[in-house]
Protein backbone atom coordinates (compact mmCIF):
# COMPACT_ATOMS: atom_id res chain seq x y z
CA UNK A 1 0.00 0.00 0.00
CA UNK A 2 1.35 3.37 -0.96
CA UNK A 3 -0.18 6.61 0.15
CA UNK A 4 -1.78 8.06 -3.02
CA UNK A 5 1.31 6.99 -4.91
CA UNK A 6 3.20 10.07 -3.86
CA UNK A 7 6.72 8.75 -4.02
CA UNK A 8 9.71 10.88 -3.13
CA UNK A 9 13.27 9.65 -3.50
CA UNK A 10 16.31 11.51 -2.28
CA UNK A 11 20.06 11.17 -2.22
CA UNK A 12 22.76 12.95 -0.30
CA UNK A 13 26.31 13.06 -1.54
CA UNK A 14 29.02 14.02 0.89
CA UNK A 15 32.27 13.10 2.54
CA UNK A 16 33.33 11.48 5.79
CA UNK A 17 36.46 10.07 7.38
CA UNK A 18 37.09 6.62 5.91
CA UNK A 19 36.67 3.80 8.41
CA UNK A 20 39.86 2.12 7.18
CA UNK A 21 42.68 2.73 4.77
CA UNK A 22 41.61 2.29 1.17
CA UNK A 23 37.97 3.20 1.82
CA UNK A 24 36.57 6.08 -0.17
CA UNK A 25 35.79 9.20 1.84
CA UNK A 26 32.84 9.83 -0.45
CA UNK A 27 29.41 8.72 0.66
CA UNK A 28 26.19 8.47 -1.31
CA UNK A 29 23.10 7.76 0.80
CA UNK A 30 19.59 7.30 -0.56
CA UNK A 31 16.16 7.06 1.03
CA UNK A 32 12.46 7.55 0.38
CA UNK A 33 9.42 8.98 2.10
CA UNK A 34 7.06 6.91 4.19
CA UNK A 35 3.51 7.57 5.23
CA UNK A 36 1.34 4.94 6.89
CA UNK A 37 -2.07 6.29 5.96
CA UNK A 38 -3.62 9.36 4.42
CA UNK A 39 -4.43 10.69 7.87
CA UNK A 40 -1.10 9.88 9.40
CA UNK A 41 2.04 11.95 9.64
CA UNK A 42 4.64 11.63 6.95
CA UNK A 43 8.34 11.07 7.16
CA UNK A 44 10.13 12.75 4.30
CA UNK A 45 13.01 11.18 2.43
CA UNK A 46 15.11 14.20 3.41
CA UNK A 47 14.32 13.63 7.12
CA UNK A 48 15.52 10.04 6.89
CA UNK A 49 18.68 11.19 5.16
CA UNK A 50 19.37 13.94 7.70
CA UNK A 51 18.87 11.43 10.52
CA UNK A 52 21.49 9.21 8.94
CA UNK A 53 23.95 11.89 7.82
CA UNK A 54 23.82 13.69 11.18
CA UNK A 55 23.64 10.53 13.28
CA UNK A 56 26.47 8.55 14.81
CA UNK A 57 26.44 5.46 12.63
CA UNK A 58 26.65 6.99 9.16
CA UNK A 59 27.67 10.53 10.09
CA UNK A 60 29.07 12.66 7.29
CA UNK A 61 31.58 15.46 7.74
CA UNK A 62 30.04 17.48 4.98
CA UNK A 63 26.98 17.15 2.77
CA UNK A 64 27.72 18.55 -0.65
CA UNK A 65 24.19 18.21 -1.99
CA UNK A 66 20.70 16.85 -1.54
CA UNK A 67 19.11 15.47 -4.71
CA UNK A 68 15.34 15.06 -4.51
CA UNK A 69 13.16 13.50 -7.22
CA UNK A 70 9.37 13.56 -7.08
CA UNK A 71 6.32 14.76 -8.90
CA UNK A 72 5.90 18.45 -8.09
CA UNK A 73 2.96 19.74 -6.12
CA UNK A 74 2.01 22.99 -4.44
CA UNK A 75 3.81 23.48 -1.14
CA UNK A 76 1.48 22.72 1.78
CA UNK A 77 2.71 25.65 3.88
CA UNK A 78 3.86 28.40 1.54
CA UNK A 79 1.31 27.49 -1.17
CA UNK A 80 4.12 28.14 -3.63
CA UNK A 81 3.61 26.46 -6.99
CA UNK A 82 6.79 24.93 -8.32
CA UNK A 83 8.17 23.02 -11.29
CA UNK A 84 9.95 20.57 -9.00
CA UNK A 85 9.18 19.45 -5.46
CA UNK A 86 11.37 21.44 -3.09
CA UNK A 87 11.75 20.29 0.54
CA UNK A 88 8.72 20.82 2.77
CA UNK A 89 8.70 23.39 5.58
CA UNK A 90 9.76 20.86 8.21
CA UNK A 91 12.70 19.78 6.07
CA UNK A 92 13.82 23.24 5.02
CA UNK A 93 13.59 24.42 8.64
CA UNK A 94 15.72 21.50 9.77
CA UNK A 95 18.24 22.13 6.99
CA UNK A 96 18.43 25.81 7.93
CA UNK A 97 18.83 25.05 11.64
CA UNK A 98 21.56 22.52 10.86
CA UNK A 99 23.32 25.13 8.72
CA UNK A 100 23.00 27.67 11.53
CA UNK A 101 24.48 25.21 14.02
CA UNK A 102 27.88 25.74 12.43
CA UNK A 103 29.01 22.13 12.64
CA UNK A 104 29.63 22.18 8.90
CA UNK A 105 27.75 19.03 7.89
CA UNK A 106 25.04 21.13 6.29
CA UNK A 107 25.81 24.73 5.41
CA UNK A 108 23.88 27.54 3.83
CA UNK A 109 25.82 26.71 0.65
CA UNK A 110 24.76 23.06 0.59
CA UNK A 111 23.07 22.45 -2.73
CA UNK A 112 19.50 21.24 -3.03
CA UNK A 113 18.87 19.86 -6.50
CA UNK A 114 15.31 18.88 -7.29
CA UNK A 115 13.97 17.14 -10.38
CA UNK A 116 10.55 16.20 -11.69
CA UNK A 117 10.13 12.43 -11.58
CA UNK A 118 8.04 12.50 -14.77
CA UNK A 119 10.81 14.24 -16.70
CA UNK A 120 14.05 14.59 -14.81
CA UNK A 121 15.35 17.16 -17.29
CA UNK A 122 13.12 19.59 -15.39
CA UNK A 123 15.45 20.56 -12.57
CA UNK A 124 16.01 23.30 -10.06
CA UNK A 125 19.35 24.14 -8.49
CA UNK A 126 19.12 25.90 -5.14
CA UNK A 127 21.12 26.14 -1.96
CA UNK A 128 19.87 25.71 1.59
CA UNK A 129 19.99 29.48 2.00
CA UNK A 130 17.64 29.87 -0.99
CA UNK A 131 14.84 27.63 0.26
CA UNK A 132 13.15 29.98 2.71
CA UNK A 133 13.53 32.89 0.33
CA UNK A 134 11.97 30.84 -2.48
CA UNK A 135 9.02 30.08 -0.21
CA UNK A 136 8.85 33.70 0.93
CA UNK A 137 9.45 32.71 4.54
CA UNK A 138 12.59 34.72 5.09
CA UNK A 139 13.98 37.72 3.29
CA UNK A 140 17.65 38.36 3.83
CA UNK A 141 18.42 41.98 4.69
CA UNK A 142 21.97 43.30 4.39
Amino acid sequence: MQYRGFDVGAVVVGTRTPAKEGDTPWAVLFDANTKPTANDAKWCAEQYLMDRALGAEERLERILAFVVVAQPQKDDDSQQRQITLTPCKLCRDRMSHAADSGDGVISSETEVITADARETAFRKFQKVKDLRVFHKEYIEVD
Binding site: M1, Y3, F6, D7, V11, V13, A32, K35, P36, I113
Partner: peptide
Protein backbone atom coordinates in the same frame (compact mmCIF):
# COMPACT_ATOMS: atom_id res chain seq x y z
CA UNK B 1 27.67 12.11 -11.55
CA UNK B 2 24.63 14.36 -11.43
CA UNK B 3 22.74 12.16 -13.89
CA UNK B 4 23.59 9.10 -11.81
CA UNK B 5 22.52 10.80 -8.57
CA UNK B 6 19.19 11.86 -10.06
CA UNK B 7 18.59 8.38 -11.48
CA UNK B 8 19.35 6.83 -8.09
CA UNK B 9 16.98 9.21 -6.30
CA UNK B 10 14.28 8.47 -8.86
CA UNK B 11 14.62 4.71 -8.40
CA UNK B 12 14.83 5.03 -4.62
CA UNK B 13 11.28 6.38 -4.68
CA UNK B 14 10.13 2.77 -4.67
CA UNK B 15 11.03 2.63 -0.99
CA UNK B 16 8.00 4.56 0.10
CA UNK B 17 5.94 2.21 2.21
CA UNK B 18 3.28 2.07 4.81
CA UNK B 19 3.53 0.61 8.27
CA UNK B 20 0.26 -1.15 7.48
CA UNK B 21 1.99 -2.85 4.57
CA UNK B 22 4.94 -3.72 6.76
CA UNK B 23 2.76 -5.24 9.44
CA UNK B 24 0.85 -7.31 6.91
CA UNK B 25 4.03 -8.32 5.13
CA UNK B 26 2.90 -6.87 1.81
Amino acid sequence: VLEDLIALAKDARGWQCSTVALMSGR
